[in-house]
């Protein structure tokens, strides 16, 4: 599904990612962990196509295509989804309006007709229940005045409606209390399938108590210091990031 080869990325001339290699197959859940400043969020944003990130070396293949050559909207239409760490507020655009515009843009890209208004509403309402959200949410402006937890839940709602092939979740767990975390995890787990892959970017191990990853990668100083199975996350929880940073330093 996704193959990252030797990816180097700079922001404002400063190297942030220094040679990332990653291979994610359909059906897999990968967790990318690492201390603050290790480049986790940069990786997530580069994959989504955020402007301002300069790829200085390396390639990214997504479903056999050159991901980096695609515009952000094209990536989204091809099934890539980024759940933002800090979702923006968009006063004047309701959630339902955004969902409809996004879903129809994706459907159009795949040569499908626009969804019937009634069917669309029914689908969306189903998903709000899954995430324990009030339907009234749909008619409010995107994230406007939402609490941190509501914003994160809204990201997952969008994901559930858009049904991406590859979902990248950037610190979706941060700022969530335990109940919200469970709901969000439940929403993610409900979407897990053989055809869909997830990349969970997270600072803490606790999200992984609810979503069991197939692979865990630890980022330090812009490269993957260590990869392993779910056990690695637990190990990290015990030892702390100092342990992998030492590994990374030793490697470098």
């Amino acid at each position: 599904m996704l193959r990252i080869e030797n990816l180097h990325v700079s922001v404002e001339g400063k190297p942030i990612l220094k040679g990332i290699d990653l291979n994610v197959k359909a059906g897999e859940v990968h967790a990318i962990m690492g201390p603050n400043g290790s480049g986790k969020s940069t990786l997530a944003h580069v994959l989504a196509g955020r402007p301002g990130y300069e790829v200085t070396a390396g390639r990214v293949w997504y479903q056999g295509k050159d991901l980096l050559a695609m515009a952000p909207e094209e990536r989204a239409r091809e099934g890539l989804f980024l759940a933002f760490q800090y979702p923006v507020e968009i006063p004047g655009v309701s959630n339902i309006y955004l969902l409809k515009a996004a879903l129809n843009a994706i459907r159009k890209h795949h040569g499908l007709n626009e969804l019937d208004a009634m069917d669309f509403l029914a689908t969306v309402k189903d998903k709000t229940r899954l995430l324990d959200m009030d339907e009234q949410f749909l008619y409010r402006a995107v994230n406007e005045g939402f609490s941190g937890g509501e914003k994160k839940r809204n990201e997952i709602l969008q994901m559930a409606v858009l049904e991406p092939k590859l979902a990248i979740l950037d610190e979706t767990d941060s700022g969530l209390d335990i109940d919200a975390l469970k709901i969000v995890a439940q929403g993610i787990n409900a979407l897990r399938s053989e055809k869909r892959a997830f990349i969970l970017v997270t600072h803490y191990q606790r999200l992984l108590n609810y979503i069991k990853p197939d692979r865990v990668h630890v980022l330090a100083h812009g490269s993957i210091a260590k990869s392993g199975d779910a056990g690695l996350a637990l190990e990290l929880e015990k030892q702390g990031y100092g342990w992998v940073e030492q590994l990374a330093d030793a490697g470098a």
Partner: peptide, 28 residues
């Protein structure tokens, strides 16, 4: 630009994203 990117990341093309945000600015 933050808002434009957010909409594009949801599959909405750039001109549409800008129009949507302009509209939203007024619609408020």
């Amino acid at each position: 630009e933050e808002l434009v990117f957010y909409l594009r990341s949801r599959g909405i093309d750039e001109p549409s994203a800008r129009n949507m945000l302009t509209f939203a600015f007024a619609n408020e």
